[in-house]
Simulated scan of single mutants.
Amino acid sequence: MPRRQSRRRRHEEAADWVLRQSRGPLSSAEEAALQAWLADPDNRRSYESARQLFGAAGQAIASDPDLRAFEAKPAKPAGLKVAVVAAALAIGIGSFFWADGPMRLRADLIAGIDEMPRVTLGDGSVVQLNAGSAIAVDFDLGQRSVHLMRGQAYFEVAPDRDRPFSVTAGTTTVVALGTAFDVRLGQADIAVTVTEHSVLLDLGEDRTTQLNEGQQGRYQIAGAQLTVEDSDHHRALAWRDGKLVLDDTPIDEIITEIDKRMSGKIFVTGASLDERRLSGTIDITDPVAALSFIEQALDARTLQIGPMIIMRLD
């Protein structure tokens, strides 16, 4: 197993142990298993990192004035102790996930909500992440593999005949053929846009397709269907300049892009999202202004509750 894969597995196991401990005392068998696992120094280091991250997440939640001001209804005296323990457990686990704890333990590079970092990898290849995106990197003597765990990334691949370069997103693997390309992992689909040379799409089950410069492949996850079409890469890569170019774009896709750049969460209620589409160009470097634009364009109403924004479409 490559070194980075082994490290991520340790991180995942460490997070699991910390979460199990947060739910209450371990059984004798579990405690023995934990101690045996901690006998490995690398495991112990991952465990300590997970504990620190868990604690830091709780502090982050406590520092948020909106969340800190939240008041729970008093519990009945008989259930007070149980309620306090349950609340503490919920806050601990919830804050761990709120602070993106699991992803931070697994990924090698994570972009913040207001970041689009451009990073040079160990082989000289360059990757730029869209806001909120995350990748894990596995390079060894025989291969160069990147796992797009969330979001979107643009790759400029350094040539290396002896080590193929591939990017895995969901069930799809993109194999570079000396190229530059963009990969977006969405909830419903995976989109690959080629800006230089070509790539090979491996969809599994012996299904492969070559995409050439100027083409975009869009793989629908639910139906396992691939659509290939000519693409305007300036539009597809507008996110790199902080722009979102819309062409009869479904509102749920627009909200997803804005949501990546906000510290809270946007929820949309009311009319079917499939019926609402927009065209135009939005500056997504200012997510509040972008959301205001959508609110006016769709005659929607919004309500903010702490870190949550609820948008209602009539």
Score class of each variant (00 low, 15 high):
T172W: 03
P287Y: 11
I282R: 07
F96R: 02
Q5S: 13
A134I: 00
L38A: 11
E213H: 07
G94S: 04
T195D: 12
A57Q: 02
A136P: 04
E275Q: 15
E257G: 03
T256Q: 12
G92Q: 07
Q5M: 07
L244A: 02
I93T: 05
R261P: 00
Q143S: 14
W239V: 02
R218I: 15
L148D: 07
T269N: 12
V167Q: 11
H233E: 02
D230R: 13
E13S: 11
A78Y: 04
R118Y: 00
I282E: 07
R68F: 07
F139A: 02
L129D: 03
L200M: 14
G55E: 14
L34P: 05
M149V: 04
M116D: 11
P77A: 10
Q304W: 07
L244K: 03
R4F: 02
Q5C: 05
F267G: 11
R9L: 11
Q225P: 01
I221V: 14
Q215N: 05
R23N: 03
S279G: 15
G217C: 11
S49P: 00
A134W: 00
P307W: 03
G101K: 04
F70Y: 12
A86D: 15
R3H: 09
T209R: 14
S63H: 06
Q21A: 07
A50N: 05
E31T: 12
K243H: 06
I110M: 03
G217Q: 11
